[in-house]
Design a protein around this nucleic acid. Structure first.
Lengths: 156, 156
DNA sequence: GGATAGTTTGGCATATTATGCCGTAAATTG
DNA sequence: CAATTTACGGCATAATATGCCAAACTATCC
């Protein structure tokens, strides 16, 4: 019993991904409904978990998180114990915005935000490489951001 | 003349990063202000561009974007022309959520979302490798998501 | 094809929230 | 310590959200 959203739901999601704080009245106008059914659809999308949450997006450069880096991590071993330990450590580090386990070249990929290169080195030395699971870290430092989207593509 | 936010602003940002749609009345309670000055602070944070926007966060698995992959791209050449061409191509592809230029091992790092591995291969073959600037693509496919945060760490 | 059950919609009354204004308190400055 | 600036809280008003109900629409079955 999966939630099947139609064209109107798709438009609602599209608008809310651009402006999560649009008033229901304006949202209704944009999707061609009156406010009542529009709000009901939004509530259903929320209850179904399709809309997970609403967040404010801050400008990283203006809150001291201007540098995004990608770190590829190699574990000492690949057993569950080591992985779990790594997961818990990573969840406690607010600088780590995303963390994925891979089976490819490396064991984990992290997106990390800090103020600048200096504070990143400190972060890597003081926190990342000190996680017991970690054998090796290789860092890619972006020079420029070409794109940063918050809008998932909505297939229909 | 940079905007210097204080402890209360920091708390406001923290709350709004968790719940971008909290009512101003509840927000005021959480940060220990009455509604009027609280709303005024939020507006100032918005006008200063510290709060960039508000967005709805969707569950990727529920909207057909369950697979996140990282692609490292090598360009044919590193001149401005090729880079610009790549930037424009990438901005047109909704599957590309983030794209950064690097000076390290590769030339660009992309975070791409698709429904599954099959649709990723199609995307890579039909779109990514067809960008004229692209010489080579190496893909890291995460097996599991350990962490996904939308909350920038707020230094004070 | 028509009747019926189920679903979705739109309108309305009410509750909640946002907004703008103003007097007051607190902080800053010289 | 007085003057000035800044931020706060309260209040009236406007805008919005919410819940309810009747009507329109859809799908199904006979």
């Amino acid at each position: 019993m999966s939630f099947n959203f139609d064209e109107i739901d798709r438009r609602i999601l599209k608008v809310l991904q651009r402006d999560g704080r649009i008033s229901n009245i304006d949202l209704a106008k944009e999707v061609g409904l009156s406010p009542s059914p529009c709000l009901r659809r939004v509530r259903l999308l929320e209850e179904a978990g399709i809309i997970d949450r609403y967040v404010a997006v801050l400008d990283p450069t203006k809150v001291g998180a201007g540098l995004t880096v990608f770190a590829r991590v190699w574990f000492k071993t690949q057993d569950a114990q080591v992985t779990l330990q790594f997961a818990e450590a990573v969840r406690r580090l607010p600088e780590v915005m995303e963390c994925y386990l891979t089976t490819g070249e490396c064991d984990a990929i992290l997106r990390i935000v800090t103020a600048d290169l200096h504070s990143y080195w400190r972060f890597q030395a003081d926190h990342l490489t000190r996680i017991a699971s970690v054998l090796n870290v290789k860092t890619d430092v972006p020079m420029e951001t070409l794109k940063r989207s918050f809008e998932l593509p909505l297939a229909l």
